[in-house]
Every structure is written in structure tokens, then in C-alpha cells.
Design a protein around this nucleic acid. Structure first.
Lengths: 123, 123
DNA sequence: GCATTAATTCAAGATTTGTTGTAGTATTGA
DNA sequence: TCAATACTACAACAAATCTTGAATTAATGC
């Protein structure tokens, strides 16, 4: 990963609204959400949401597919994994796995999930 | 992790200089580096480096220990892991490990490494 | 064709951020 | 005590970012 790519991703995520958008889309990793749904769930004006969605898409955080007049957004998890790899590169002199401990974390990565995430329960 | 904490970490990392600092300190995960060494390796004026180190420390990305008149900085990897957990929370409806694939990544996490990283070879 | 809905683009103002130079604090060693 | 070193704090200007409202494009259904 290039440095500029990482910066764009981090800049994009470093905003309360965009962080909410990203985390919401991670919860709906397989199906994604259309812009209107996101606007409704996060109570954002369409104009402002559109600004942030464009920002995140250009940063590579999200992918978009058009469905008629709807735009369906999804979190780009492989790209997030690449960012994490960039951030932790060359740790322990290249022997990264030497001090790895992810057991207590709740992740979801690799390719898209095959198990659809339909249960929405954000407080 | 609170949202404000995550934002501060991401804001802090979303800068070319601070990203370089962080990655450099990840390479020296166990021993860390004093401010002067960082300034020398990244060719930064002391004033500017100090500004960024303070920013990163306040964001929780780095830890500092005083050694005489030197300040030794280290990357706070557990905090980075917490951030990653926050970003990927509730993926796949809570069944995060269902679609996990970290095999191709180079990580270093958990507590500090026990194997010192002395080999410095940034191009 | 025409009205409606979904989403984006554009311009403008307020806020925030980054860099630099100067000054200041604190530790070291003679 | 004095000078040198390591690092930090402050002020100020230039640059980038966020939000909002009005206008625009595109797809749908009658």
C-alpha cells in the first residue's frame, strides 16, 4: 500500500460521521445499504451524507453499485486489512506473528462474508 | 473504545509525517526511539517533530518515558488493536471470525514484543 | 410526457489544522 | 555556576475541511 492511499483512508475515517457510516456498513457487510437508508439511520441531511460517501468511496473505504436510482454502498474490508498491514508492517523486525494476539478481538475481514448480516441492533 | 478516542487516533495517523513516525516506531517496537533519533531518521526540524509527537501521544498512539534529558517514544500497539476492533465491530452480525483471513498479513500486536527489533532498514 | 423520488454537484462561510521562528524549560558535565 | 544539549511551548499566518442551501442529474411510475 502506498502512503498516500493510507493517508486518504485515515483522513476519511477521522470524522465522527464517516466513522459512524463505516461502522454501520460493517454491520451490513454483505448486503450493504443504499444512501437513503444510511441517511435515515444516522439522521443526516442527504446533501451532507452524499459529501461524506463520496469522500469515503474515493478513499477506497467503500464500494458502490447502482441499482436503478439507488446507490448501494458497502464497506471495503480487504482494503481495511491492507491498511492494517501497512500500519503494522515490519513489526518485530519482520517476525510479525511472533507477538500476535488477536484472540480477544472481534473482527471480520478477508473477502465479503458469506453469512448475511441482517440483525441490526445499534443502540 | 469511545468514538472520540478512535477519531483522535485516526486524525493523528492521517498525516504523512505522523504515519512515518508511527511506522518507524513500529519497527522499533521494543526499544522505541528518542526524539532526536526520530528527527534524524526522518529529517525533521525538532520543533515540528515535537508538535507531531505530542499530537500522537495525546491520541494514545505513542507512549513516552523520560530518560534523563531524553524522551523515549514507543508505539502503543494494544491501543492500535483496540482501534481495529472498534472499526470491525459487529461484522457479520457478531460472528466476526466467520470470515477472518489474516494469513497474508504482517502484523505485530498484543503486548510489546519480547524479541527486540534492532535491524533498521528503511529505504 | 410529466411529476415524484433518489442522489449528487456547486458555492460560501466558519472552523480547524500544519508549519515556522522565537523563546522557554530541564538535564548534563565541567 | 555556567555553557551546551534535548526537547517543548507559544504566536501567527497559510492552507485545508465541514456544513448548509439551492440547483442539477437520473430513474421510476402514471
Amino acid at each position: 500500500m502506498q502512503q498516500t492511499t493510507a493517508i486518504h483512508m485515515l483522513e476519511s475515517l477521522a470524522s465522527g460521521i464517516r466513522l459512524d457510516i463505516y461502522r454501520l456498513l460493517v454491520k451490513h457487510i454483505s448486503a450493504g445499504l443504499v444512501a437513503g437508508d444510511i441517511a435515515q439511520q444516522l439522521e443526516l441531511p442527504a446533501t451532507n451524507l452524499s459529501f461524506h460517501l463520496k469522500n469515503m468511496t474515493q478513499a477506497g473505504l467503500l464500494s458502490v453499485t447502482q441499482q436503478g436510482r439507488y446507490q448501494r454502498y458497502r464497506a471495503n474490508l480487504p482494503q481495511m486489512l491492507a491498511l492494517i498491514g501497512y500500519l503494522t508492517e515490519e513489526c518485530c523486525g519482520g517476525e510479525a506473528s511472533a507477538c500476535l494476539d488477536f484472540s480477544s478481538l472481534m473482527y471480520c475481514a478477508g473477502q465479503q462474508c458469506d453469512t448475511p448480516a441482517q440483525t441490526i441492533s445499534e443502540t
